[in-house]
Structure formats: structure tokens, C-alpha cells
Design a protein around this nucleic acid. Structure first.
Lengths: 337, 337
DNA sequence: TTGAAAGCGCTAACAT
DNA sequence: ATGTTAGCGCTTTCAA
């Protein structure tokens, strides 16, 4: 069909073994032979078949990114795609293909086992949303090269990386204090929203360090939606003269509702109330004043995951530790007192 | 290393050819043999190697999704990932892997050629952002199974599908007229923003059909950003008593700025001014009143692309036509006069 | 430094 | 209905 290693060997007057060695940069080939082979390749416009090469080498040169996708996930979870983009950049740079596979959480085990047994990939990058203790057991038993994105909510043998949300919370609180705000309030998401809880934790830790304490009434929870945050903020404001001077919103949606409520109440940001939130999307730069945020380079999470999985593929039992990326404070107008 | 077809054949007391036939569902194998082979497979926990199978079959069972990714594209281009998710759903359902590859526009030709020659995929789904006349030539010459997402901006042999933005514009205008608005205004993006231009085109066509004409002063252009749209809207309002009674915003960002300007000017939506825009993200449901939009099921675009590319892989010279998906009107509060 | 030969694990005529 | 045989296109000992 197309030109193969045999054709090259014939034209170059060598064996296929020699051609193979030339392709793989063996040192034991004379300069002249190398040149002859290269010329033959050029002349025939030869390109080695990946499939054949991988079969012979017993590798796939592919990594599967496993997650749960569906209608609207492009909109509802841009972070995941940001990670995916970062991951792709390092994989393709190293000659690996990134195969993206969506899978229901209950089917993950069967899929991973099969994908491994039929040699569909050399390793897996798995979103925490689809993991389970069973998967942990499987991966541990079969020694599957993997890296989980997001900290598992249960103890496991998994290798994982995650964003340090607690640290992000610490940075938010520390920034407010530095700016001279003193009576901090926190509006979080629903119970069980781990991201929100970790951020809150960080905030509380910083207050404790400064021998401060957050008034009970300044700690609020609700849905991670604009509407809910609007009401919650209004509750907060009903406190009369016992008002906070800054609000930490657990995420962009909450921040949006919160800012709307403050505007409607005629409270000036940042003079009367400082506002800080997390992540730089989708509202932080659109609201006025523009919001100070603690953001995370999610793309970088993907890059880290890529480096990690490639290492695991090389040396399966190396680096069993966890890893964490750093948040970044982007100071804007909502906290300049 | 692992269990192969030979082991199965040996245990089942047949040839490997028979095992292969059993796997591929050949009709010319006796019931008993089939059962014996299946038992052997189970007993040995056999799983055929994809690499070997694909090599022998001269296929890859993979489709490459080619686009240009980078830091922030998860946020700035959620549509693309929505398409990707739709694409993945049909590919994986049909046993194909979706390989995602980011590539700079200037490297696309070389990449596609190489990927084809080294047999990395059976077909390509390519985002219009990275195409060029050279690519068209290459794909045409090498008869590469492909489908472009987005209408090429030049004449070509490409197979492509795209959203019908002109139709979306028509729907927006028609809806406003139906609601009783009569003096329509259009705020578009920059010159050269094809999406905005097509939408505008649709609007104008509908007006013409109704023997209406848009006042020059009601047709505005600016950047696709909230700030810019805020100013543009103010210009529009400075028209004194010559005001439109509805505004069509070319996208969500423009709509956001526009709504802010109207609010600050004390103009009531939808009573004094109807607002309609396109796409349901990220602001249309967060603004008050919630915005009526003409949206497109982008996920469905991915599904269509998937079906299309699989057909092309089967029969490379079938379906050379283009295809288009339908916009959907989501009626909300901003146009209930 | 080079090449012969035996794989990698499966498929696909062609016989039987 | 089943087996023989020759690939698919490349890699990798091992010997020369």
C-alpha cells in the first residue's frame, strides 16, 4: 500500500534492521549508512507507521483523559477544559496522544480495566469526579499508571494533584487584613461543597493567627448561585450597625449576587465594603468595580498532571506523593480601601 | 507477557484463525467451537490487543480533533469544548477514540500530512480557526477523511458544518416584531467578526421582508466587550426622542454592557426597551431581567460532526455537502412587552 | 558496523 | 466448519 521500511532498506541497500536503527538513532551505524538511509527515506517520502512501531515496542504513546462530559459541561466546567488544554500541551510535546474519554462514574472501573488490558493507553489522567474506592483498588492491584485531578474524598492509594484551596482562602483573608479591613464575613456554598469549605478553612486559620474571630452572624452559607447569594447578602446587611467591612465570597456566582445586593443597598465598594472572591471567571472582570480575586492557574494544573503521568509511565512506582499548585492574588478595585 | 490469541487457541484446541473468527463474529463457526473458544477466553481472562488488531486491519479506530488551544481557551471558548463533548459521545459510542490535538495554524498542514502518513487516525475533525487554502489542497489531494467545524472564509473543497448564524439573526428580529417592538436597533462586534455580521444580515433580511428599515443611527458596532457596549449603548441613547424600542445585541458581552447602560439610564426592560441576544452564556441568565436569547445546541454540532466523520471514514467520497444546525429561541423576560 | 531471523498479536485469503 | 499460511510494518536479539 504505502512505502514501508522494506522499500527503504532495498533502496538504501541495507537490511530493515539497519533502517530501524537509523530511525531510532543507534550509535552503531556508520555515518555513510545513516546518510544513505536518510536519502532513501526522503526519496521515497517514507513515514514509519505508528501502529506497527507501537506494536513492536509494546507501547501506545497515548494517555487517556477520563472524565464525565455531557451537554453543557463546556459551559458549566470550563476549568476542566483548561486543565485538558494544559495536559495536551505537555503530552503532545513529548510525542503522546491525548485521548479524551467521557464515562459515567459507575462504568469507570470496567472501562479502565478493559482499556488497560486491551492496551489502549500507557496511562490515565482521571478527573476526581469519576473515581471510587473500587477504582482505587483496581488501579492499585493492576499497577496502572495514573494521576487523579482533584483530591479524593476518601483515603486511597491514588496519586493525585489538586489546587490548594485552603491556601487560597488564607491568601484572601490575609489580603483583606493587609488592606485594613477588620470585620470579615464569609459567604460560602452549600454544605458538602469541598472547595468552598477548604477556602473557608483557610480564612478561619488566618483570622486565628491574627487573634481575630469571625462573628457568627458574618458566616453565611447558601447555594452557589447569584440569586441565593443576593438574598444571603441581604440577610447579612439586615444586621443593622453590626456590619462587616469586607466579604469573602466563596466563588464567582456568589460574588455576583453579593455585589448586586450591595449596589441595591447603596453600599459602596470598596470604601464601605471590600469584596474578594476566587477564580477569575466568569464575572470578576465584568463587575464594577472589578473584583480582586485569588485565582489559580488551572492550565498549569494540566501541565503538572501531564508531567506527572509521563513520569509514572516511565517509572510506575516513583513519586507516590501528592502535589499541589499555587494560587495567585490578582489585586483589583474591590479591595482598595 | 500477557495472554494472547495463541494461548486461547491452544486451550480451546483450535487454530488462532478460528479464535479470530469467533471474535469477529464469523457465521461459519459451529456453536460448540464458539462456546469452547469463549470458555477459553474467560478462563484465561483474554483481551485482544488493540494495537495488533488495528495493525492487521489497517485502521486506527481514532479520530483526531484538531484545534488551537492555549491558556484560557477553556474560559474564552466554551463552545469549542461543548462541541468536543458532543463529538466524543458519538465517537466513543462507535468504538472510536477521540484524540485531541492543539496545533498552531501554520503547522496544521505538516501535522495533518504526517498524522495521515504515519497512520495516527482514520479521520480528522478540524476547527475552522486553523484551516487554510493549503490545508484544503492537501486534504483534497490526499483524500483525507475530514469535517471542518465552522464555515471556511474562502472557497474550498472542504466538508464543513456550521451554525446558521444568519438564521439566528432572523429569528431574533422576527421574535421582536412579533412581540410588538417596531424600532429595532442592532449592536454588533468589530468589523470582520463573521458571526456578528451573519447575525446582522439575518436581522436586516427580516426587516426588509416586513418592509421596514433600520435607521442608520440604530446600527452600531464596537468591540465584543462589556465596556465598549456600555459606551455604544449610551451613544444610542443620546439620540434624544429618536430612540429604538428594542436592541439586538450580537453576543452576550455586548448584551451585558448594554443592559448596564440601560439600567444606569433608568430605562426599563422590557417595557421601554426590549433586549435580545445570542447564546445562553455566560450572562444571559444572570442579568435581571433574564435575557431572551437565540441559542444553538452546540453539543449537537459535535454530534453531527461525529456522525459525519464516521460516514466519511466509511465512504470517503460520499456526502460532500455542507450541513447546518438549527438555532433555538429561548424566550425570557427581556422581551415581554 | 551490519544483517538474519524471530517476534509483537492479530487478520485474511485460500485450502481442505 | 476449520486450519494453514502469509502477512500488517516495525523492533530487537544475536551472530557475523
Amino acid at each position: 500500500m504505502s512505502v514501508t521500511i522494506k522499500d527503504v532498506a532495498k533502496l538504501a541497500g541495507t537490511s530493515t534492521a539497519t533502517v530501524s536503527k537509523v530511525m531510532n538513532g543507534s550509535y552503531s551505524i556508520s555515518r555513510e549508512t545513516v546518510e544513505r538511509v536518510h536519502r532513501a527515506m526522503e526519496e521515497l517520502n517514507y513515514h514509519p507507521s505508528n501502529a506497527a512501531r507501537n506494536l513492536a515496542k509494546r507501547v501506545t504513546k497515548a494517555v487517556i483523559f477520563l472524565t464525565s462530559l455531557g451537554r453543557d459541561s463546556g459551559f458549566s466546567n470550563p476549568h476542566m477544559f483548561e486543565i485538558m488544554a494544559g495536559l495536551e500541551s505537555v503530552l503532545s510535546e513529548k510525542g503522546y496522544a491525548m485521548t479524551v474519554r467521557s464515562i459515567a462514574p459507575e462504568d469507570v472501573c470496567a472501562y479502565v480495566q478493559n482499556a488497560m488490558e486491551t492496551k489502549m493507553a500507557d496511562g490515565f489522567v482521571i478527573h476526581a469526579a469519576v473515581i471510587s474506592p473500587e477504582l482505587d483498588e483496581l488501579i492499585y492491584r493492576m499497577e496502572i499508571p495514573h494521576i487523579i485531578i482533584g483530591m479524593p474524598g476518601f483515603t486511597s492509594h491514588f496519586c493525585w494533584i489538586d489546587i490548594n484551596n485552603k491556601l487560597a482562602g488564607e491568601m484572601a483573608a490575609a489580603h483583606l487584613l493587609k488592606q485594613g479591613y477588620q470585620k470579615l464575613s464569609f459567604i460560602g456554598g452549600e454544605e458538602g461543597d469541598l472547595i468552598s469549605e477548604h477556602r473557608q478553612q483557610g480564612v478561619m486559620d488566618v483570622l486565628k493567627e491574627h487573634d481575630l474571630i469571625m462573628s457568627r452572624r458574618f458566616l453565611k452559607h447558601g447555594e452557589s448561585a447569584c440569586d441565593s447569594a443576593y438574598s444571603t447578602t441581604n440577610e447579612l446587611l439586615r444586621g443593622g450597625n453590626e456590619l462587616p467591612d469586607a466579604i469573602i465570597c466563596a466563588n464567582n456566582y456568589i460574588a455576583y449576587g453579593c455585589v448586586m445586593a450591595l449596589k441595591d443597598a447603596g453600599i459602596r465598594i470598596p470604601e464601605q465594603m471590600g469584596i474578594i472572591t476566587f477564580d477569575d471567571y466568569p464575572f470578576s472582570q465584568v463587575l464594577r468595580p472589578m473584583l480582586t480575586v485569588v485565582s489559580v492557574d488551572v492550565y498549569d494544573v494540566g501541565i503538572q498532571a501531564g508531567r506527572y503521568i509521563l513520569q509514572k509511565i516511565r517509572k510506575p512506582n516513583l513519586f507516590i506523593q501528592t502535589y499541589i499548585t499555587l494560587p495567585l492574588l490578582i489585586e483589583r478595585d474591590s479591595t482598595r480601601k
